[in-house]
Nucleic acid binder design. Structure first.
Lengths: 212, 212
DNA sequence: TTGCATAAGTTAACAGTGTTAACTATATTT
DNA sequence: AAATATAGTTAACACTGTTAACTTATGCAA
């Protein structure tokens, strides 16, 4: 029947369909609600079959984590058209922010959860965090370009990059984990801001621009 | 009525010893490994007894979360002796950073996990996040004092405070979740830094100081 | 064709988790 | 003494990740 045919097709690339099922569940119900058993039910195989294709749940998490970085990389793609270094850095931050807020589950997997990258250390040949490094190198490049254009004088490129990343990451996670919302509901100065994240980001950019 | 009072006290005692047991487990084994059943075993009561004193696990998490904020508040205490506003802001950041790195489990509970503050919304009279607010108000006060001393001119106090908090929070979480370490092991520019967090923080302070 | 090894997938189980309904034993009140 | 309220327990539900042991199907050499 139709189901059997579909099953046959799945068998051809079971590893991929496990990942697809995981992704589907993960995007619709979040990471915690994505259990091995639910993935198995989705592809209509027994839970133990998953372990024939992935070492454990962390390995699936890592595979999704890689997908997330691919998605972010494509969104960073437009940056090549922004010629002015500072404008490019600004745009990079905006893309990062939007990515985090619009793909919060992916963001969690990429920059919050320990599992996907802890998995690296456990397995393989002491593999490093390739995805994160690439993104950071792009940031380093942009910060460096800004410095050549006269920004961030006498400041360490790496340290400035770390700060830029940290600020954005902090803003994203405080928002995503509900801390900003919980505070804005009662703190008057925050209540007045209509978009705290966006306004804070803009202020940060003004701060960066005004470093003498 | 003496008997009733003693009973009340016993009830209070048990509620407190549940919290103590939870804290002990949580500090030695982390949040995830602190299960209701383990807490029960620690105080030598059955797991269900816990539910006579706390609504659910999130309520225990919230109680510990409050303890964490008390601890942070005492560490902030020394700030009153720092008269210069900018130096005080600097010291505040250093205390925050040290607190996060030395009490990573508490930090997770206070600023990362959703459970303890999501619990607020679920129960009570739409209670707000008192602890977080108080800490933020202290930050607002210090940023405002800096502005009166000529720093951060023409910048919104709340936005600057949000950025300061975000930057510190970002730095802390990237470190605590292993993202910095995973990157520093292969990225050359990071390898050269002996203490990435500390050096980045210092750079951030220089950046703030140099805003024209 | 028979016999067998390998691969692929399944069943059943282990050791946990948070949480709840229903029960018991004890102490207090009527 | 009987009724009631309190405190705590047992047993269960519905989950979780993960593993050992089993079955079934396939391809290949004798």
């Amino acid at each position: 029947m139709g189901i059997k045919e579909r099953k046959e097709k799945h068998k051809e690339n079971l590893r991929q369909s496990i990942l697809d099922a995981a992704k589907k569940l993960f995007l619709s119900e979040g990471y915690d609600a994505t259990s091995i058993r639910k993935i198995a039910a989705e592809i209509e195989f027994s839970p133990t079959t998953i372990y024939l294709y992935y070492k454990d749940k962390a390995e699936i998490a890592h595979a999704l984590h890689v997908e997330g970085f691919k998605l972010l990389a494509t969104q960073f793609g437009v940056l090549q058209f922004v010629k002015d270094p500072f404008e490019r850095l600004k745009a990079m931050g905006e893309i990062y922010l939007r990515f985090a807020l619009e793909n919060s589950d992916f963001y969690e997997l990429m920059f919050v959860l320990k599992e996907p990258i802890a998995h690296l250390k456990g397995s393989c040949v002491y593999e490093n965090w390739e995805e994160g490094e690439q993104a950071f190198q792009a940031l380093l490049y942009n910060v460096s370009a800004c410095q050549q254009a006269g920004y961030f004088k006498n400041l360490d490129t790496t340290a400035v990059s770390m700060i830029a990343w940290s600020t954005l990451h902090g803003l994203c996670t405080l928002k995503l984990h509900g801390h900003i919302d919980h505070m804005s509901s009662h703190e008057p100065s925050l209540q007045q801001m209509e978009d705290i994240v966006k306004q804070s980001y803009n202020t940060f950019m003004v701060m960066l621009e005004r470093i003498k």
